[in-house]
Amino acid sequence: MSRTLDFVAQSLRIALPYLAAAMGGIWSERAGVPNVALEGTMLFAALGTVAGTTSTGSPVAGLAIGLASGVAVQLTHAAAVLYGRANAIVSGLALNLIASGGTRFLLRAFYDSSSNSPQIPVLGSRTGSLAVVTLLDPMTWFVAAVVVATVLGLERTRLGLRVRAVGEHPEAAESVGVSVVTTRIAALALAGAAAGLAGAWLAFDQRQFSSGMSGGRGFIALATVIIAGWRPLPAVAFALLFGTAEAAQIALQDQKAVAHQVVQALPYLLTLVALATLRGRGRPPAALGKT
């Protein structure tokens, strides 16, 4: 029983950063702005969380600074795409490169290390079984809140309606008085907070920042968004599926029957296979990339 429970908890834990980042991807792409910058956003937010925590001594302040870092990255994306007329993929790739080099630069500047930061205190407690730890971890509930806010917010709020309108038909939205640029900025700020939460989750999970710690999770999250047809609920399902598959892998890894490199490659292989086979009824927002 407890092994099953641990497995479920493990699956959920792995899915949490995917869930948060995927919700961010949905806000951005449903507003029509392609977002490959989720990866770099997570990375900067993870470092922001750690730097904020070590400098203030408070993980709550660290979380706030991490989220602010994520929002800052996405607002840069917004400025480059909406005002600078940059291709959104180019802007995203550039931001990822800046994040990968910039976080290592800052790691050396802050902590004089090229690999990792010192350990940080975390939110919640770390005693008890994995299931208990996960349930009592406030970060779990923050991610849950982001998921609920996205599912309901996109369908039921004025902002959600506007986001969908500018993503489908910006001219029509503009003609009824919805500012396309303002709406997209708001959507990208939300994306920054959500992907930032994913980065903060990684920082608290590993209790430190290590260089390149996002490890492609931002891209996997984006893949779940695409597979889910840009709809929040299916994205949640796919993120949970990915988490479960990876938890199964970790269980495999413990058995030493399979080479660890093969196990390592599985999430990426799974993403490729899923991209090829699981595309359902979803279609991209009509104005995606036409910024």
Binding site: A80, Y83, A94, L95, I98, R104, F105
Partner: peptide, 13 residues
């Protein structure tokens, strides 16, 4: 790497 990334961004805008 930061400068390379910034250069791409600046060329794009």
């Amino acid at each position: 790497d930061v400068v390379i990334g910034l250069t791409i961004l600046f060329v794009a805008i």
